[in-house]
Design a binder for these strands. Sequence first.
DNA 1: TACTATACGGAACGATGGTTCCGTTTGTCA
DNA 2: TGACAAACGGAACCATCGTTCCGTATAGTA
Lengths: 227, 227
Amino acid sequence: MSTGMTGRERGDAAPMGSERHMRADAVRNRERILEAATTLMAVHGIDVPIDEIAELAQVGVGTVYRNYPTKGALFEALLLARITPLVAAARTAAAADEPGEAFVAFVRNLCEEFADFKALADAMVASGVDLSAAKNQISGELIDAVSRLLERAQGSGRIRPDVTIGDVSAMMAGLSHADPMLMDPSQRRRCVALVCDSLLVGARSVLPQCELSRSSPGAVRRGSRSS
Amino acid sequence: MSTGMTGRERGDAAPMGSERHMRADAVRNRERILEAATTLMAVHGIDVPIDEIAELAQVGVGTVYRNYPTKGALFEALLLARITPLVAAARTAAAADEPGEAFVAFVRNLCEEFADFKALADAMVASGVDLSAAKNQISGELIDAVSRLLERAQGSGRIRPDVTIGDVSAMMAGLSHADPMLMDPSQRRRCVALVCDSLLVGARSVLPQCELSRSSPGAVRRGSRSS
DNA sequence: TACTATACGGAACGATGGTTCCGTTTGTCA
DNA sequence: TGACAAACGGAACCATCGTTCCGTATAGTA
């Protein structure tokens, strides 16, 4: 972390100018880069070296930098693509008939997204640290949308009235911070269920089964993986 | 992360051999190093450069390395010092008259520890990644102790019977991951309270007040801090 | 097919941070 | 007080990673 990425003033993370004639190979390469970056950032978060992205895309580093002037720009481009639909989803949920249920479902979804795309979680975790204007705006929109959703859900009486958007953000950040060892998908779902139970009024759901070995009490299986 | 610290076979992170004659200045310096490392790792976690530790200790880097053959060794030495009392606390709690309450109190305590000493949280988060034998053992002991505590608490009927030690570990890891921006102390306490509510049977506690500005709904204050 | 703007690749640069090495200093003991 | 092992400091080394630069290749066009 603390890559010290300085956001450029220009709002466009994508290639500059209107799409004048772009050479065919350039278009192809840009797609490849985006694809490779998505694949790698999904798994490793923002920590993937640019070299690896370039290698997977079968492209030189220079080509990556021609499309995205900085690693942060590439990161943001992917991020925006992920967050935008979430904002829409939150708005839809806020308009649902059962805002309480919709809220919980949305939170569940959000956590799945975090798990599927680690870079998103990294971004969430880094919230509050200097973000570019574009990212600040979109994440602000997300928070706004979730706030409205939360309000309506509380209005319906299904969600604890004393829960704040700050609580939700913090919980999401915590849940998103999925160490793959402690937090395999099934374990994560259990935790999400627990957290949701704590948000709901008078709820006590049946926790999803955890696939992980139960084994003798007090022994958490621990793999050994060196980077 | 992924510093690639290779654990040495020797179990002692502290200076080698039995305490033969150590020169007075050497003793003094070792204490200084430990002190400086504690101070810095409490705030910055494992990411502090050795140089900074050395500087604060008013010592050369070489001196740090003479005492702790690797950064990981120093890290572990501090960690063990922190975890050991936690194990004892868990055992005491397990023997308490009200194991349910004791469990919750212990969890609360654990979270405070995480917040006070970021390196501990880093270690928790890195669980499952290659640890040295010494660390594996002590953290295994901690899990054992918490498991027993959990079992007794569940036996008393205060804690949900479907909660597992895996759930607790994962929740702690999430909670420990305190981004100072999203998770100022008061916000953290609220989250801990929420999580504890989700663990307890039929509980719904009053959430501690959050000091953070409430401001207009849907706007989370966001500071701008560059590393 | 020849020409040129566009795009490419990857070596090289600079910053950061862990670790080692070695010439110098200093505590201790006789 | 003199000698020497122990300990010191910090420059230097190496690896990683973001970013830049420039000589080369090529898509598009006439």
